[in-house]
Design a protein around this nucleic acid. Structure first.
Length: 282
DNA sequence: AATTATGTTGCGGT
DNA sequence: AACCGCAACATAAT
């Protein structure tokens, strides 16, 4: 479910509430959701929360990392009893009924706070790693799309021998991380480039335009707290994101392109639903 | 009933 | 060797 903006939103919010808290107790309700042994976490004190690609990681005082990949349907929900009655109410009403049938792991923290890992489809995981093992997670992946190292020249080199469609290329973690299906489609619409174009046939100018569009799209989505479709992605208190109200193409087949008014179409690329304008995306 | 779903990996073929 | 396409993971909604 989540792409970089959703994981970034969750990570920023966790960073506001978790540092200084200690893990008191762990409960793994579904074994496959936690890789390894969760009991090793008990007694560790949280120092920081960081994001890389679509992985959010809690960093402990001993420099070990509790990494989370939400995959398609994962959620991290934080419940602090001291804030429970204040500060508005969550978008999702199930937050007051945790654990739910989709809760796979729960952590009891100091001060009676709780952290829940929910995951309908069981693709997601949490895992305790050393710093080296955490670094290793990203060893085969390119930089985050928001990183300054992602330049036109960088992408041009990565695309140079790839005949795959450009949409598939920008979603490939080995090239660049953080661009998922929703933002790939929207970035290509903003750049007015067809998702079907072979990556190696884009001009330098087109790559420059596409890169700017990707950075702009991702930055806007981060500002809006991510995208919530079907109530699936929510932030740590159950609140929805806001980008779905601004989305350019995703889920808008049959509706007019904001660039040119032509009706958007939907086709599959590499097995993924792809929304695009058949007129202005060339 | 079949298709679809915001992600990634691993396999076999070229 | 590098690249590409496709199945697999598991569940729920349309």
């Amino acid at each position: 479910m989540p792409e970089l903006p959703e994981v970034e939103t969750i990570t920023r919010r966790l960073k506001q509430v978790l540092p200084g808290k200690k893990i008191i107790d762990t409960e793994v309700l579904v074994d496959k959701s936690f890789i390894g042994s969760a009991t090793q976490l008990e007694g560790k004190t949280i120092k920081d929360v960081v994001r890389r690609a679509k992985i959010s990681s809690i960093v402990f005082e001993d420099n070990t990392y509790l990494a989370t990949h939400l995959k398609m349907t994962g959620q991290l929900i934080y419940v602090d009893p001291q804030n429970r009655l204040g500060g508005g109410h969550p978008t999702a009403d199930w937050v007051s009924e945790l654990p739910t049938k989709h809760t796979r792991i729960r952590y009891r923290l100091s001060d009676d706070a709780e952290l829940f890992f929910n995951d309908q489809r069981l693709f997601g995981w949490m895992k305790l790693l050393t710093q080296d093992e955490h670094d290793e997670l990203f060893s085969a992946w390119g930089p985050d799309i928001i990183d300054d190292s992602v330049t036109t020249a960088f992408l041009q080199q990565k695309f140079s021998r790839r005949s795959i469609p450009i949409k598939q290329a920008i979603m490939d973690n080995a090239i660049v991380c953080g661009v998922g299906n929703i933002y790939a489609a929207d970035s290509l619409n903003l750049a007015r480039i067809s998702p079907f174009r072979p990556a190696n046939l884009l001009s330098e100018k087109e790559i420059t335009v596409l890169l700017a569009a990707m950075k702009e799209t991702i930055a806007k989505a981060v500002d809006m707290g991510g995208t919530t479709f079907d109530g699936n992605y929510v932030s740590i208190d159950g609140f929805a994101g806001g980008y779905q109200d601004e989305v350019l193409t995703y889920g808008r087949q049959g509706q007019p392109c904001y660039n040119c008014g032509t009706l958007l179409e939907k086709e599959k690329i590499a097995g993924r639903g792809t929304y695009y304008c058949p007129n202005c995306q060339v």
